[in-house]
């Protein structure tokens, strides 16, 4: 609604849009480094990025989240987001180490994303990553036999957050006064247009 509280809550939208826009570019750079990604068709690369970018960004945002004051630091004291600013984004404090990277890859290579064509190939890429993640856990977390299963469960949680984000994005982008504050890249990646 148009309450004052609602307006002030969106006052950081331009900065948030910039942050997300920057993060999308990082996600694209990250995806390009994963063996196999660039061998996919351009259409599949685009479909995977459009559907998974927000999940990777949400995962990464946990690295700048402080449990001490329950806020995200996004470049200096002037750019702090408290939990209320971004209520739906926090997904619990992830331990950020290299297993997170494998995890991000696995989310990226989900063959059941909308618009994906070469399902078999993407599934094969994900299977390979699952094997690597399991091996990584065996070596670095010998006692963590349930860790892999828990992480797979978290992928499902990320999906729900992705859906929530899509809903919120849609309602935001229908309001011209808000959508004009987004960047062209954000509009393109989160827009509904499928490649």
């Amino acid at each position: 609604d148009s309450s004052e509280e609602d307006n002030s809550r969106l006052s950081m939208l331009p900065h948030l849009a910039d942050l997300v826009s920057y993060s999308i570019q990082k996600v694209i750079g990250f995806a390009k480094m994963i063996p196999g990604f660039r061998d996919l068709t351009a259409e599949d690369q685009i479909a995977l990025l459009k559907s998974s970018a927000i999940e990777i960004i949400m995962l990464r945002s946990n690295q700048s989240f402080s449990l001490e004051d329950m806020s995200w630091s996004c470049g200096g004291p002037d750019f702090k987001y408290c939990v209320n600013d971004v209520t739906k984004v926090h997904i619990g404090s992830f331990v950020c180490e290299s297993r997170c990277l494998w995890y991000e890859c696995m989310g990226l290579f989900s063959a059941d994303r909308p618009g994906v064509q070469d399902h078999a190939r993407i599934e094969a890429l994900q299977d390979r990553l699952c094997d690597v993640l399991q091996a990584y856990i065996r070596i670095h977390h010998p006692g963590g036999r349930l860790l892999y299963a828990k992480m797979i469960q978290k992928l499902a949680d990320l999906r729900s957050l992705n859906e929530e984000h899509s809903k919120q994005y849609r309602s935001l982008s229908f309001q011209p006064e808000h959508s004009m504050q987004l960047t062209p890249l954000v509009l393109e990646v989160f827009g509904s247009e499928v490649s």
Partner: peptide, 17 residues
């Protein structure tokens, strides 16, 4: 197929070095 998503295509194509 439409040749849209121009920014994504550009970012995917560009050489990162």
């Amino acid at each position: 197929k439409k040749k849209d998503n121009a920014l994504l295509r550009y970012l995917l194509d560009k050489d990162d070095n």
